[in-house]
Amino acid sequence: MKRSAMLFGLLLGGPLLLSPLLAPVPAAAQAPPALTYAQPLGPEAVNRVQDRLRQAGAYSGRVDGIWGPDSQTALERYQQRNGLQVTGQLNQATATVLGLNPADLVGGPPGPAPAASAETLSEAVVRNVQGRLRSLGFYRSGVDGIWGPTTQAAIEQFQQGRGLQPNGQLTPATAAAMGLDPNNLAAPAR
């Protein structure tokens, strides 16, 4: 699993995503792999974490609600500076030292929402999505407002890189992860 594709999460109980941690062990001494539980954070929670990391002097990037390599490195740097176990994940100990309440960061489960279909997206919305994907480094073609295979492939790559289901559809979760308002896809990115 690529480092940039790792899920950012909190170690909490409840219905969460499972991710095995595999370590090379001799076959004779091999025990079942340990499991960690990760709850992806929404853009507002990521904003709060990025802001706290910035206040602590560990993060100099933009507070944009998108967890990327700079945020990951800042979290690891913060953990190391503060004598915490350097896990690269926002666990309860790290959240507490940052002055954040883990329960406040993880919202309730989102209700199912439909994906936007290519047939229902206006040219302005497609331009906005293409521009956002381009600014995030996932789209290299012209911002033309036409939903085609290149745009769909960029959405899939973005989804895969953010630990989302890579289906090429512009779901509310995908739009939010891109920093777009799922209720107003034509609005500028946050």
Rank of each mutant, 00 (worst) to 15 (best):
K2R: 10
R3Q: 14
L11E: 15
L12A: 12
G13K: 08
L17I: 15
L18D: 12
P26Y: 04
Q30S: 11
A31P: 00
Y37S: 10
A38T: 15
A45F: 00
V49F: 00
L53A: 02
L53E: 01
A56H: 11
A58G: 03
G61L: 00
R62C: 00
D64Q: 06
W67K: 05
G68V: 04
S71M: 03
T73G: 01
E76I: 07
G83T: 13
T87C: 03
T94G: 00
A95Y: 03
T96I: 04
V97Q: 13
P102N: 04
P102S: 05
A103W: 08
L105Q: 09
V106D: 00
G111I: 14
P112Y: 13
A113L: 12
P114T: 12
A116T: 07
A118R: 13
L121Q: 10
A124W: 00
A124Q: 09
V126L: 02
V126P: 01
V129R: 09
R132N: 14
R132I: 11
L133H: 04
S135K: 15
G137K: 11
Y139A: 03
D144F: 05
G145D: 06
E156V: 10
Q157A: 09
Q159I: 09
G161A: 15
R162E: 08
R162N: 14
P166M: 07
G168H: 05
T171L: 08
P172G: 08
M178P: 02
G179A: 05
D181Q: 07
D181N: 10
N184C: 00
N184E: 11
N184T: 03
A186H: 05
P188F: 06
